[in-house]
Design a protein around this nucleic acid. Structure first.
Length: 433
RNA sequence: GGAGAGAUGGCCGAGAGGCUGAAGGCGGCGGUUUGCUAAACCGUUAUAGGGCCAAAAGCUCUAUCGAGGGUUCGAAUCCCUCUCUCUCCGCCA
């Protein structure tokens, strides 16, 4: 959410920046000035009625406290306050309607793209920042992971469909172990080398948390909701992790705070029917190691680079070739001011696919979730900046390993760094069905 | 699921219809003292939204004592509903 005062004072600039996102983002502000004027007028009216009521009430209190039994004066005051009551009720209704309208506008406005975000309206305008690693030369035609996985007997979509439906997978044997190995490897790296605290958060959160990170109210359709309760399955660990410090004031000395968690992520994938229907790319449930940082505003862009590097370090250790994309304004998520996508090379499909998304939200989420810190020597708390990124999406890392490390005989070699996590087995051989 | 207790500022904790935005303490900040540190002492220290102001500062108003309603001229305080926490009983991985 943007700051009301900021929007008011910089309306032209805000509209201009929103326009960079394309769509109708800037149009949301069309009636802003008029609404703002009417809202303030209503508040001002309401408050003057309340002011008079409070003043009269304290006059009554003075009479009573001083034991002045001036019944007539007291009666007159009480009469006047009774009258004010109806004015207050009327004013209150009007002010609250206008307030709600203003909140609705502010809540719908996406974050402003940072100046270093390229202009553009679709993924085609994303800018490649760098590329790491060289795609391996195969002396056979590499297969997509679903073929490799099913032939090895470690991936089972049929039974997943039976027990859950489309967009679910069952992993068997070394496949299941590979997922666990990747998760442990990533968590170890981030906690031991990159200074993140490991967290195991709830996988269900309430509506307030989803509002805090920006999934609600706008993106309800992407979420799974438990009927009849305020419990929602998390679409990413970003939600519980970022909300750890909701409604708190942090000490500047604590910053930056870096946390990581391995969790499942649940996504309804409404509106993506027919997209990525084969394989593990797009599932209703996948696991992810998430990185979240709470930082002082001056450091957020520096920390954004670091966080991105932490996610890259996983790909580098696994020797998976990738490229880093600076998302253009039109491709930016609702809450993000700037995002780098990491795209891993998938030889079975001959494409680079997103495997991590590292974003700086500046104060956008902090304002919604009320996460503040007290700068040293300053009494007024300020909003922190929040950042997050996948470090990495374990499901997609799994399939990237399968595709990049497949061998002519159908087996899959285990990346060097994972050997200790795989119980010493150097390759995945066919499993009994 | 049953029975009870509770939720107050950054934190702890008093207050039980009327100058109470809220005592006291801790912490923070500023200062005095001091070889340095520590201690002691003094002062200061909530948030949001309006108004005045070109703006900042400042002044002023309104709201906020878990959330939402209600009673009352007036609610942190009384009533109702909800949420959460704790204790005991039952059940349970």
């Amino acid at each position: 959410m943007l700051d009301l005062g900021f929007v008011r004072a910089n309306l032209a600039e805000v509209k201009e920046k929103l326009a960079r996102r394309g769509g109708d983002a800037a149009g949301l502000l069309d009636g802003f000035e008029e609404l703002d004027r009417r809202r303030r007028r209503a508040i001002s009216d309401l408050e003057s009625f309340k002011g008079e009521r409070n003043q009269k009430s304290s006059e009554i209190a003075m009479f009573k406290l001083n034991r002045l039994d001036d019944a007539a004066s007291i009666e007159r005051l009480i009469e006047r306050v009774r009258e004010l009551k109806t004015s207050i009720e009327k004013s209150e209704k009007e002010a609250s309607i206008l307030e709600q309208q203003m909140q609705a506008v502010l809540q719908q406005i996406p974050n402003l793209p940072h100046d270093t975000v390229p202009t553009g309206t679709s993924a085609d305008n994303n800018v490649e920042v760098r590329r790491w690693g060289t795609p391996r030369a195969f002396d056979f035609t590499p297969k997509p992971h679903w073929e490799v996985g099913e032939q090895l007997g470690i991936l089972d979509f049929e039974r997943a469909a039976k027990i859950s439906g489309a967009r679910f997978a069952v992993y068997w044997d070394a496949g299941a172990r590979l997922e666990r190995a990747l998760a442990n490897f990533m968590l170890d790296m981030h906690t031991r080398q990159h200074g993140y605290r490991e967290v195991l958060p709830p996988f269900m959160v309430n509506e307030k948390s989803l509002f805090g990170t920006g999934q609600l109210p706008k993106f309800k359709d992407d979420l799974f909701h438990c009927e009849g309760s305020d419990h929602w399955l998390i679409p990413t660990a970003e939600v519980p992790l970022t909300n750890l410090f909701r409604d708190e004031v942090l000490d500047e000395k604590q910053l930056p705070i870096s946390v990581t968690a391995y969790t499942p992520c649940f996504r309804a994938e409404a509106g993506s029917h027919g997209k990525d229907v084969r394989g593990l790319i797009r599932q209703h449930q996948f696991q992810k190691v998430e990185l979240v940082k709470f930082v002082a505003p001056e450091q957020s862009y520096e920390e954004h680079e670091k966080l991105t590097a932490h996610a890259e370090a996983v790909l580098q250790a696994l020797e998976l070739p990738y490229r880093v994309m600076n998302l253009c304004a039109g491709d930016l998520g609702f809450s993000a001011a700037k995002t780098y996508d990491l795209e891993v090379w998938l030889p079975g499909q001959n494409v680079y696919r997103e495997i991590s998304s590292c974003s700086n939200f500046e104060a956008f989420q902090a304002r919604r979730a009320n996460i503040r810190y007290r700068p040293q020597g300053q009494k007024k708390p300020e909003f922190v900046h929040t950042l997050n990124g996948s470090g990495l999406a374990v499901g997609r890392t799994w399939l990237a390993v399968i595709e990049n490390y497949q061998q002519a005989d159908g087996s899959v070699r285990i990346p060097e760094v994972l050997l200790p996590y795989m119980g010493g087995e150097a390759a995945i051989q066919p499993s009994p069905r």
